[in-house]
Protein backbone atom coordinates (compact mmCIF):
# COMPACT_ATOMS: atom_id res chain seq x y z
CA UNK A 1 0.00 0.00 0.00
CA UNK A 2 1.17 3.50 -0.77
CA UNK A 3 -0.11 6.77 0.65
CA UNK A 4 0.76 10.11 -0.88
CA UNK A 5 0.46 13.04 1.54
CA UNK A 6 0.40 16.67 0.40
CA UNK A 7 2.30 19.05 2.68
CA UNK A 8 2.12 22.84 2.54
CA UNK A 9 4.54 25.31 4.11
CA UNK A 10 2.57 28.08 5.82
CA UNK A 11 3.34 30.91 8.27
CA UNK A 12 3.24 29.88 11.93
CA UNK A 13 -0.40 30.19 13.05
CA UNK A 14 0.82 31.86 16.26
CA UNK A 15 2.76 34.55 14.39
CA UNK A 16 1.37 38.04 13.96
CA UNK A 17 0.76 38.55 10.26
CA UNK A 18 1.31 41.99 8.79
CA UNK A 19 0.12 42.99 5.33
CA UNK A 20 2.61 44.90 3.16
CA UNK A 21 1.67 48.58 2.84
CA UNK A 22 1.06 48.18 -0.91
CA UNK A 23 -1.28 45.23 -0.29
CA UNK A 24 0.62 42.88 -2.62
CA UNK A 25 1.26 40.30 0.06
CA UNK A 26 2.30 39.80 3.66
CA UNK A 27 5.54 40.85 5.35
CA UNK A 28 7.69 37.72 5.34
CA UNK A 29 10.82 39.05 7.09
CA UNK A 30 11.55 37.04 10.23
CA UNK A 31 8.32 35.12 9.77
CA UNK A 32 8.42 31.56 11.06
CA UNK A 33 7.03 28.80 8.88
CA UNK A 34 5.54 25.47 9.85
CA UNK A 35 3.75 22.51 8.30
CA UNK A 36 0.13 23.51 7.72
CA UNK A 37 -1.64 22.06 10.80
CA UNK A 38 -4.22 20.18 8.70
CA UNK A 39 -1.42 18.67 6.59
CA UNK A 40 0.21 17.55 9.83
CA UNK A 41 -2.99 15.72 10.72
CA UNK A 42 -2.95 14.13 7.25
CA UNK A 43 0.64 12.93 7.79
CA UNK A 44 -0.31 11.50 11.18
CA UNK A 45 -3.29 9.62 9.69
CA UNK A 46 -1.10 8.16 6.95
CA UNK A 47 1.41 7.00 9.57
CA UNK A 48 -1.36 5.42 11.65
CA UNK A 49 -2.72 3.58 8.60
CA UNK A 50 0.80 2.35 7.96
CA UNK A 51 1.22 1.19 11.56
CA UNK A 52 -2.21 -0.39 11.94
CA UNK A 53 -2.63 -2.05 8.55
CA UNK A 54 0.54 -4.05 8.14
CA UNK A 55 2.74 -1.42 6.57
CA UNK A 56 2.52 1.11 3.79
CA UNK A 57 4.89 3.51 2.12
CA UNK A 58 4.17 7.10 3.11
CA UNK A 59 5.38 9.60 0.49
CA UNK A 60 5.21 13.33 1.15
CA UNK A 61 4.78 15.89 -1.61
CA UNK A 62 5.14 19.63 -1.44
CA UNK A 63 4.89 22.21 -4.21
CA UNK A 64 6.82 25.42 -3.69
CA UNK A 65 10.23 26.94 -3.10
CA UNK A 66 13.42 25.19 -2.03
CA UNK A 67 12.78 26.11 1.63
CA UNK A 68 9.72 23.82 1.65
CA UNK A 69 12.17 21.01 2.27
CA UNK A 70 12.22 22.14 5.92
CA UNK A 71 8.58 21.12 6.27
CA UNK A 72 9.16 17.90 4.34
CA UNK A 73 12.00 17.06 6.74
CA UNK A 74 9.63 17.60 9.65
CA UNK A 75 7.24 15.10 8.09
CA UNK A 76 10.07 12.65 7.47
CA UNK A 77 11.12 13.08 11.11
CA UNK A 78 7.57 12.19 12.14
CA UNK A 79 8.05 8.90 10.27
CA UNK A 80 7.21 9.31 6.57
CA UNK A 81 9.39 7.26 4.23
CA UNK A 82 10.42 9.68 1.51
CA UNK A 83 9.51 13.02 0.04
CA UNK A 84 9.14 14.80 -3.28
CA UNK A 85 9.51 18.55 -3.63
CA UNK A 86 8.06 20.07 -6.78
CA UNK A 87 10.06 23.25 -7.16
CA UNK A 88 8.45 26.50 -8.17
CA UNK A 89 9.23 30.05 -7.09
CA UNK A 90 6.51 32.37 -5.83
CA UNK A 91 2.92 31.52 -4.96
CA UNK A 92 1.47 28.53 -6.74
CA UNK A 93 -2.27 28.67 -7.13
CA UNK A 94 -4.37 25.70 -6.01
CA UNK A 95 -5.33 24.41 -9.44
CA UNK A 96 -1.68 24.13 -10.43
CA UNK A 97 -0.91 22.29 -7.19
CA UNK A 98 -3.78 19.91 -8.00
CA UNK A 99 -2.44 19.33 -11.51
CA UNK A 100 1.07 18.70 -10.17
CA UNK A 101 -0.31 16.20 -7.66
CA UNK A 102 -2.38 14.49 -10.37
CA UNK A 103 0.80 14.07 -12.42
CA UNK A 104 2.66 12.60 -9.46
CA UNK A 105 -0.25 10.26 -8.75
CA UNK A 106 0.18 8.94 -12.30
CA UNK A 107 3.87 8.25 -11.57
CA UNK A 108 3.53 6.98 -8.00
CA UNK A 109 0.23 5.06 -8.22
CA UNK A 110 -0.78 5.54 -4.57
CA UNK A 111 -3.81 3.87 -3.00
CA UNK A 112 -4.74 6.95 -0.99
CA UNK A 113 -3.91 10.62 -1.36
CA UNK A 114 -4.21 12.37 2.01
CA UNK A 115 -4.42 16.15 2.25
CA UNK A 116 -5.29 18.71 4.86
CA UNK A 117 -8.83 20.00 4.33
CA UNK A 118 -7.38 23.47 3.73
CA UNK A 119 -4.24 25.50 4.29
CA UNK A 120 -4.39 28.06 7.06
CA UNK A 121 -2.76 30.77 4.95
CA UNK A 122 -5.16 31.17 2.01
CA UNK A 123 -8.00 28.97 3.32
CA UNK A 124 -8.81 27.89 -0.24
CA UNK A 125 -10.06 24.40 0.63
CA UNK A 126 -10.05 23.16 -2.97
CA UNK A 127 -6.96 21.12 -3.84
CA UNK A 128 -8.34 17.79 -2.58
CA UNK A 129 -11.63 18.27 -4.37
CA UNK A 130 -10.02 19.36 -7.64
CA UNK A 131 -7.59 16.46 -7.51
CA UNK A 132 -10.44 13.97 -7.05
CA UNK A 133 -12.17 15.45 -10.08
CA UNK A 134 -9.01 15.35 -12.20
CA UNK A 135 -8.38 11.71 -11.31
CA UNK A 136 -12.01 10.64 -11.35
CA UNK A 137 -11.59 9.19 -7.82
CA UNK A 138 -13.92 9.17 -4.86
CA UNK A 139 -13.33 11.74 -2.16
CA UNK A 140 -13.89 11.85 1.58
CA UNK A 141 -13.34 15.44 2.63
CA UNK A 142 -13.37 16.94 6.17
CA UNK A 143 -12.57 13.51 7.61
CA UNK A 144 -12.91 13.06 11.36
CA UNK A 145 -12.44 9.30 11.13
CA UNK A 146 -11.04 6.96 8.51
CA UNK A 147 -11.69 3.22 8.45
CA UNK A 148 -10.20 0.93 5.85
CA UNK A 149 -11.91 -2.33 4.87
CA UNK A 150 -10.14 -5.53 5.83
CA UNK A 151 -8.91 -6.18 2.28
CA UNK A 152 -7.97 -2.49 1.92
CA UNK A 153 -10.13 -2.13 -1.16
CA UNK A 154 -12.36 0.59 0.25
CA UNK A 155 -12.54 3.23 2.96
CA UNK A 156 -15.31 4.64 5.12
CA UNK A 157 -14.74 8.27 5.92
CA UNK A 158 -16.71 10.04 8.64
CA UNK A 159 -17.20 13.65 7.62
CA UNK A 160 -17.94 16.54 9.88
CA UNK A 161 -20.89 18.30 8.31
CA UNK A 162 -23.20 21.00 9.61
CA UNK A 163 -25.21 19.62 12.48
CA UNK A 164 -23.66 16.15 12.61
CA UNK A 165 -21.60 13.42 11.04
CA UNK A 166 -21.87 11.75 7.67
CA UNK A 167 -20.29 8.40 6.75
CA UNK A 168 -19.28 7.97 3.13
CA UNK A 169 -17.80 4.85 1.61
CA UNK A 170 -15.53 4.87 -1.41
CA UNK A 171 -13.39 2.37 -3.27
CA UNK A 172 -9.64 2.88 -3.19
CA UNK A 173 -7.75 4.64 -4.64
CA UNK A 174 -9.37 7.70 -3.16
CA UNK A 175 -8.77 11.22 -1.90
CA UNK A 176 -9.14 11.94 1.82
CA UNK A 177 -8.83 15.40 3.37
CA UNK A 178 -8.23 15.73 7.11
CA UNK A 179 -10.30 17.80 9.51
CA UNK A 180 -9.14 19.02 12.90
CA UNK A 181 -10.50 16.16 15.00
CA UNK A 182 -9.19 13.28 12.90
CA UNK A 183 -6.23 12.76 15.24
CA UNK A 184 -3.65 14.50 17.33
CA UNK A 185 -0.37 14.56 15.38
CA UNK A 186 2.72 13.14 17.05
CA UNK A 187 5.86 15.16 17.67
CA UNK A 188 9.02 14.38 15.79
CA UNK A 189 11.30 12.46 18.15
CA UNK A 190 15.03 13.12 18.31
CA UNK A 191 15.83 9.70 16.75
CA UNK A 192 13.19 10.52 14.12
CA UNK A 193 14.96 13.78 13.29
CA UNK A 194 18.27 11.95 12.97
CA UNK A 195 16.78 9.28 10.70
CA UNK A 196 15.06 11.88 8.54
CA UNK A 197 18.28 13.28 7.21
CA UNK A 198 19.10 9.98 5.53
CA UNK A 199 15.70 9.65 3.85
CA UNK A 200 15.24 10.44 0.18
CA UNK A 201 14.02 13.93 -0.71
CA UNK A 202 13.68 14.18 -4.48
CA UNK A 203 13.36 17.54 -6.19
CA UNK A 204 11.52 17.99 -9.48
CA UNK A 205 11.14 21.40 -11.16
CA UNK A 206 7.45 22.09 -11.78
CA UNK A 207 8.27 22.72 -15.44
CA UNK A 208 9.46 19.10 -15.82
CA UNK A 209 6.03 17.72 -15.00
CA UNK A 210 4.63 18.95 -18.31
CA UNK A 211 1.41 20.34 -16.90
CA UNK A 212 -0.64 23.37 -17.84
CA UNK A 213 0.73 26.22 -15.72
CA UNK A 214 -1.52 28.99 -16.94
CA UNK A 215 -2.53 31.26 -14.10
CA UNK A 216 -6.25 31.58 -13.58
CA UNK A 217 -6.53 33.59 -10.39
CA UNK A 218 -4.68 36.79 -9.68
CA UNK A 219 -4.65 38.26 -6.18
CA UNK A 220 -5.37 41.96 -6.51
CA UNK A 221 -4.97 43.18 -3.00
CA UNK A 222 -4.61 42.02 0.58
CA UNK A 223 -5.85 44.16 3.42
CA UNK A 224 -5.67 43.60 7.16
CA UNK A 225 -8.88 43.16 9.14
CA UNK A 226 -10.16 46.39 10.74
CA UNK A 227 -8.65 47.06 14.15
CA UNK A 228 -10.86 46.08 17.03
CA UNK A 229 -12.46 49.02 18.77
CA UNK A 230 -11.90 49.33 22.48
CA UNK A 231 -14.70 47.97 24.66
CA UNK A 232 -16.62 49.85 27.28
CA UNK A 233 -17.02 49.08 30.97
CA UNK A 234 -20.41 49.60 32.58
CA UNK A 235 -21.30 49.85 36.24
CA UNK A 236 -24.70 48.22 36.37
CA UNK A 237 -26.84 45.72 34.50
CA UNK A 238 -29.39 48.47 33.87
CA UNK A 239 -26.75 50.57 32.16
CA UNK A 240 -25.73 47.57 30.02
CA UNK A 241 -29.31 46.92 28.97
CA UNK A 242 -29.79 50.60 28.16
CA UNK A 243 -26.68 50.71 26.00
CA UNK A 244 -27.59 47.49 24.20
CA UNK A 245 -30.92 49.11 23.45
CA UNK A 246 -29.90 52.68 22.57
CA UNK A 247 -26.33 52.36 21.31
CA UNK A 248 -25.78 48.84 19.99
CA UNK A 249 -29.47 48.61 19.03
CA UNK A 250 -29.48 44.84 19.41
CA UNK A 251 -32.41 44.58 21.80
Amino acid sequence: MKILVAVKRVPDPNATIKVRPDGTGIVTDNLKYVVNPFCEIAIEEALRIKENHGGAEVVLVSVGEQVCQEQLRTGLAMGADRAILVLQDGDVEPVIVARALAKLVEQEQPDIVMLGKQAIDDDSNVVGQMLAEMLGWGQGTFASEVKLSEDKSSAVVTREVDGGLEDVEMPLPAIITADLRLNEPRYASLPGIMKARKKELKEIPLGDLGIDQSVQVKVHKLSPPPERQAGKKVETVQELVDLLHTEAKVI
Partner: peptide
Protein backbone atom coordinates in the same frame (compact mmCIF):
# COMPACT_ATOMS: atom_id res chain seq x y z
CA UNK B 1 22.77 23.24 10.24
CA UNK B 2 19.48 21.57 9.32
CA UNK B 3 19.66 19.01 12.13
CA UNK B 4 20.19 21.66 14.78
CA UNK B 5 17.43 23.81 13.32
CA UNK B 6 15.08 20.86 13.50
CA UNK B 7 16.17 20.07 17.05
CA UNK B 8 15.51 23.66 18.07
CA UNK B 9 12.13 23.79 16.36
CA UNK B 10 10.85 20.41 17.54
CA UNK B 11 12.08 20.86 21.12
CA UNK B 12 10.28 24.22 21.27
CA UNK B 13 7.13 22.69 19.86
CA UNK B 14 7.12 19.93 22.44
CA UNK B 15 7.99 22.30 25.28
Amino acid sequence: DDDLKNIDQEARRLA
